[in-house]
Computed example of a mutant assay.
Amino acid sequence: MTRFEFIVDGPPVSQQARRRDRLEAWKTTVRQEAEKYWSSEQKTATGLVMLQITYFYDSVEIDVDNIVKPIQDAIIGLAYVDDKQVSDLLVRKRNLSGNFKVKDMISTLGQGLDRGKQFLHIVVIDAPDQEVLT
């Protein structure tokens, strides 16, 4: 694997959701959206990976730490064999009405921004060198 990315319409459902059926429905949605972007040439990662999640919200924001686990679980067996492979994690939230700049616009991210409503941009890439901390 070098890079796998996809977008999912938001808002995300927190791991702390009281209604478990809502959480399971969210995981199913994430998986279905990921599968739409998965190509037959891609291979499920067997080594360490880095997971990057950016939540672009409009009015409702949730804590970034609560959105990670459902997404990690939803793409097991697709992007990677087991979520224990996630050695690095970058989670951000950005207000769609806010002032931010996108460097190196990727078409998938552009698709999400063009929709004009809240969404998540999720990227799985090979983990950085484990012997170097920056």
Rank of each mutant, 00 (worst) to 15 (best):
M1K: 05
T2I: 14
T2K: 13
E5Y: 04
F6G: 03
I7E: 04
V8F: 05
D9C: 10
D9M: 10
G10Y: 00
P11F: 00
P11C: 02
P11V: 05
P11Q: 06
P12K: 11
P12E: 02
V13W: 00
V13A: 03
S14K: 11
Q16M: 10
A17K: 05
A17M: 02
R18D: 13
R18L: 14
R20T: 07
R20E: 13
R20I: 11
A25Q: 10
A25Y: 01
K27C: 01
V30P: 03
R31Q: 11
R31V: 03
Q32P: 02
Q32D: 14
E33C: 06
Y37V: 01
W38R: 09
W38T: 04
S39F: 06
S39Q: 12
S39I: 10
S40I: 02
S40V: 08
S40F: 06
E41F: 07
Q42I: 09
T44V: 06
T44Q: 12
A45T: 01
A45Q: 04
A45M: 07
T46W: 09
T46L: 12
G47S: 12
G47I: 05
M50E: 15
M50L: 13
L51M: 11
L51G: 08
Q52T: 15
I53W: 00
F56E: 11
F56I: 10
S59W: 05
E61P: 04
I62W: 07
I62P: 06
I62Q: 15
I62C: 14
N66W: 02
I67Y: 05
V68Y: 00
V68T: 04
K69G: 03
D73G: 04
D73C: 01
D73I: 09
A74F: 02
I75P: 05
I75C: 03
I75Y: 02
L78T: 07
A79M: 04
Y80L: 07
V81N: 11
V81P: 00
D82Y: 06
D82T: 09
K84M: 08
Q85L: 09
Q85A: 09
Q85E: 06
V86K: 07
V86E: 09
S87F: 08
D88R: 15
K93Q: 15
R94V: 15
N95A: 12
N95P: 03
L96Q: 10
L96P: 03
N99S: 14
N99Q: 10
K101F: 00
V102W: 07
K103V: 13
D104Q: 11
I106R: 15
I106K: 15
T108I: 13
L109S: 02
L109M: 05
G112A: 05
G112N: 05
L113R: 08
R115G: 03
R115Y: 02
R115N: 02
G116K: 11
